[in-house]
C-alpha cells in the first residue's frame, strides 16, 4: 500500500512525507480540530501542535497501520490543551475583549449548541462532538478518548440526558 511506504519514510524523519500523510486526509483532520475548537485559527494552531508532536514521536509508533488513529488521538489532545489554555485566559481577564472576539461573526445556531454544550463536563462534550458532529463510531471514539467503548457510550448517554434537562424536549441515543 502506498501509505505504508510513506509512513515508513515519515518514521525516518522525512518531513514532507509526514505532511503528505496528514494532507491526504486533510478534511478529516481539519474537521476533527474544528469540532473541538470551534474556530479556524485554533483548529490550525492545534494541527500545527499535532504535527510537531507527530514528528517527535513517530519513530516510536509500533504499528504503521495505526498511524491515523494514533495521530488523531494526539490531535484531540492538542485541541483540548488549547481549549484549556483559553479557558484560563477568559477566566483571568474578566474583560470583554476576548468575549467580543469569541462571538463576533458567529452564527446564531452555533452559539446555541456551543452554549448548551458548555453545561456538560468536558468528557461529555468531547464524546458528543465526536459522535454527532463527526459521526464517529464508538470504537473510534473510544480510541481517541482512550476509554472503553462502554464508557464512551455512557458518556454520550449522560451528556444527552443533561442536554435534555437544559434544553428540554426529547432525546434518545442514536446508534
Amino acid at each position: 500500500m502506498e501509505s505504508s511506504h510513506i509512513i515508513k519514510r515519515a518514521k525516518k524523519g522525512d518531513k514532507e512525507a509526514l505532511v503528505h500523510l496528514i494532507m491526504s486526509q486533510k478534511a478529516e483532520y481539519y474537521k476533527l480540530a474544528y469540532a473541538y475548537t470551534g474556530n479556524k485559527d485554533d483548529a490550525l494552531d492545534a494541527l500545527e501542535d499535532m504535527i510537531v508532536i507527530l514528528y517527535d514521536k513517530i519513530s516510536s509508533l509500533k504499528k504503521d497501520e495505526s498511524f491515523y488513529s494514533w495521530s488523531k488521538t494526539i490531535l484531540a489532545n492538542c485541541c483540548k490543551k488549547i481549549l484549556k489554555n483559553k479557558k484560563k485566559i477568559i477566566f483571568m481577564d474578566t474583560l470583554t475583549e476576548q468575549v467580543y472576539e469569541e462571538s463576533y461573526g458567529v452564527k446564531e445556531q452555533r452559539i446555541d449548541i456551543q452554549n448548551y454544550l458548555q453545561h456538560l463536563n468536558s468528557d461529555q462534550q468531547e464524546v458528543i462532538k465526536l459522535k454527532y458532529f463527526l459521526d464517529f463510531d464508538y470504537k473510534t471514539i473510544a480510541e481517541i478518548t482512550k476509554v472503553s467503548e462502554g464508557t464512551a457510550k455512557s458518556r454520550v448517554f449522560n451528556g444527552l440526558r443533561k442536554l435534555k434537562e437544559i434544553i428540554g424536549g426529547e432525546y434518545y441515543e442514536k446508534d
Binding site: A27, Y30, K31, I113, Y132, I167
Partner: peptide, 20 residues
C-alpha cells in the same frame, strides 16, 4: 428530536467546512 436536530444542524456546518 429537538436535541438531535440541533446537533445535526451543527454537523451539517462541519460537513460543509472548507479546509483552509
Amino acid at each position: 428530536k429537538r436535541i438531535e436536530d440541533t446537533l445535526n444542524h451543527y454537523k451539517e456546518q462541519i460537513d460543509h467546512l472548507e479546509v483552509p
